[in-house]
Amino acid sequence: MLNSLARLALTATAIAPVGFTYAFVAFFNDALKAMFWLLAGSVVLVVICLWVLRTTRSRRAPAAERHKITTVEPADRENMAIMLLYLLPLFTADFDKLNWVMWVPTIAIFAFIAVTSHSYFFNPLLGAFGWHFYRVGTPQNVTNILITKRTIRKGDQDIFGIELGDYVILETEK
């Protein structure tokens, strides 16, 4: 259950900036009702994700396991391709002329790919809330994504965390 819930929550916040961008376009086209619903939906998605992560990493969370990491590097280099999806609505000056027949399937396909692949961890909004994403290597030569509130500058250490899914670890409080 946690695996699916965490994956959906992380995917939702990866998609939330699209809603914020549409809301921005709607505001400048006096589509205030649409702007309100887009903002509200995006904020709700972010709040739910933050709640899932906070609850999962808390001291009351399921028992965390010790993970030995040998290498560490930032895991936010893939963001340029996703940023294009976030910015595309800005190229349409008129909110009423947005081609929803194209946009809804595009966002749905993006969400499907994100939730079924290992790219759902990319969350620019979570970075704004102090979350960091790292690629960490293990002694078994497996690379995982580590989601943490800490800044990690060196490998060769132990962390305590919960596996959110395949190759994704959420560092927990000690």
Rank of each mutant, 00 (worst) to 15 (best):
V46A: 06
K149A: 10
I152D: 02
F121Q: 08
M35Y: 04
R59D: 14
I15T: 02
T138D: 02
A61G: 14
L10F: 05
M1Y: 07
A14R: 03
I147S: 00
K68N: 11
F36I: 04
V101Y: 09
K68F: 11
P62D: 12
S119I: 13
R54P: 10
R77N: 09
L126K: 00
R59G: 09
Y86L: 04
L53S: 02
G127W: 04
T92A: 10
S58N: 03
R135E: 08
F24K: 06
A75C: 04
A31E: 11
L88S: 07
W51P: 01
G155C: 04
N99L: 08
G137Q: 06
L39V: 11
T116M: 01
T172F: 05
M80C: 12
A61S: 15
N3D: 10
K68S: 09
R150V: 07
R54T: 15
K68L: 11
I15F: 11
A6P: 00
E171C: 08
T172K: 02
P74G: 06
N123H: 05
D166L: 15
R77E: 12
R54Y: 13
D76Y: 11
F121L: 03
A31I: 02
T143E: 12
K154G: 09
T151H: 13
E65P: 10
E163Q: 14
N79P: 01
A9T: 08
R7Q: 09
I169D: 00
T21S: 15
E65G: 09
Y134E: 01
L164F: 02
D30F: 14
G161Y: 02
T116S: 08
F95Y: 13
E78G: 12
H118P: 02
L88R: 10
L84A: 14
I48L: 06
L164Q: 03
A108R: 05
A34L: 10
L84N: 02
Y120C: 03
V136T: 03
E78K: 08
L85T: 00
Y134I: 01
L38D: 13
M1K: 11
W51N: 13
T11D: 07
F24G: 11
I162M: 00
G19T: 09
L50P: 01
K174D: 13
T13Y: 06
I152V: 15
A75G: 00
A23M: 05
A128Y: 14
T13M: 08
P139L: 11
A31M: 12
T55R: 13
A12N: 01
G41K: 10
N99P: 04
A12S: 06
F95E: 08
T116F: 08
A40R: 05
Y86N: 00
F20V: 07
V44A: 04
D94Y: 02
L146G: 01
A64I: 06
G127I: 06
A81P: 06
V101P: 09
A34S: 15
S58E: 02
A75M: 05
R66L: 10
R59Q: 12
I159D: 13
L146V: 07
L32V: 00
M102P: 06
I107K: 06
K33T: 14
D156C: 07
L146N: 03
V44D: 00
V168Q: 04
A23K: 03
F95H: 06
L38Y: 04
W37S: 08
V25A: 04
F28M: 03
